[in-house]
């Protein structure tokens, strides 16, 4: 464990908690892409199956359980509890255009042709594109509430910190996970446009982010 990965995990946890609390307290999921949240729940489900097969550390196990519970709880809030506030017409990204290529690629490019390994690879590839429905929804509606932009900021920052973690681990222990690194770079690149808007608009105190 290193500071970059710890900070990254904390940013990830903060992002997930920000979103959950926003929906829970405002009793509304307006402007939130339910599809992205379903994809994130799928990412955690396919990645954390080793919860039952291998124990790494208390931290590892606790974080995996927390991420799984919060991910499913958020999906529950969006599609069940506050479904009347869900903008399904704005959440129109065709997720099958993500799932099919990601599933195909995870069978082609992986470290081992074994069920857990394929599922782990699938979760890594899927995570890199899971935010696209949410970013697409924001471009479609042309705006995002500031709390939603803070959620996206921490979510984008988490994987950027993981990139720093991989640089650190490469230089200190020769660790290099090609699949995770390439996907992490792609994932972080998708946030670049958002980061620009976030720093130039939201942090200037203009509150809501309205796209040009």
């Amino acid at each position: 464990m290193n500071i970059f990965r710890l900070l990254g995990d904390m940013c990830h946890l903060v992002a997930i908690i920000i979103l959950f609390l926003k929906i829970w307290r405002s009793k509304s999921c307006a402007g939130i892409s339910g599809k992205s949240q379903v994809l994130f729940a799928l990412v955690f489900t396919t990645r954390y199956l080793d919860l039952f097969t291998s124990f790494i550390s208390v931290y590892n196990t606790v974080m995996k359980v927390v991420f799984l519970v919060l991910a499913y709880a958020t999906v529950y809030l969006i599609y069940l509890r506050f479904r009347s506030t869900y903008n399904s017409e704005s959440d129109s990204f065709r997720v099958e255009f993500l799932l099919v290529p990601v599933a195909g690629l995870s069978f082609l490019e992986n470290y081992a042709f074994a069920p857990l390994e394929i599922l782990w690879t699938f979760s890594i590839y899927l995570e890199s594109v899971a935010i696209l429905p949410q970013l697409f929804m924001i471009t479609k509606t042309g705006e995002a509430e500031s709390i939603t932009t803070h959620y996206l900021f921490f979510l984008g920052l988490y994987r950027a910190l993981y990139l720093a973690n991989w640089v650190w681990r490469y230089h200190t222990e020769g660790f290099f996970d090609q699949i995770a690194v390439v996907s992490g770079v792609v994932q972080t690149i998708f946030y670049c446009d958002f980061f620009y808007l976030y720093f130039t608009k939201v942090l200037r105190g203009s509150g809501k982010m309205t796209l040009p």
Binding site: R5, D9, I56, S57, N60, Y111, Y162, D177
Partner: peptide, 10 residues
């Protein structure tokens, strides 16, 4: 590629 790498990352 090392398939048995410890997946200690979240």
């Amino acid at each position: 590629a090392d398939s048995e790498k410890d997946k200690d990352e979240l």
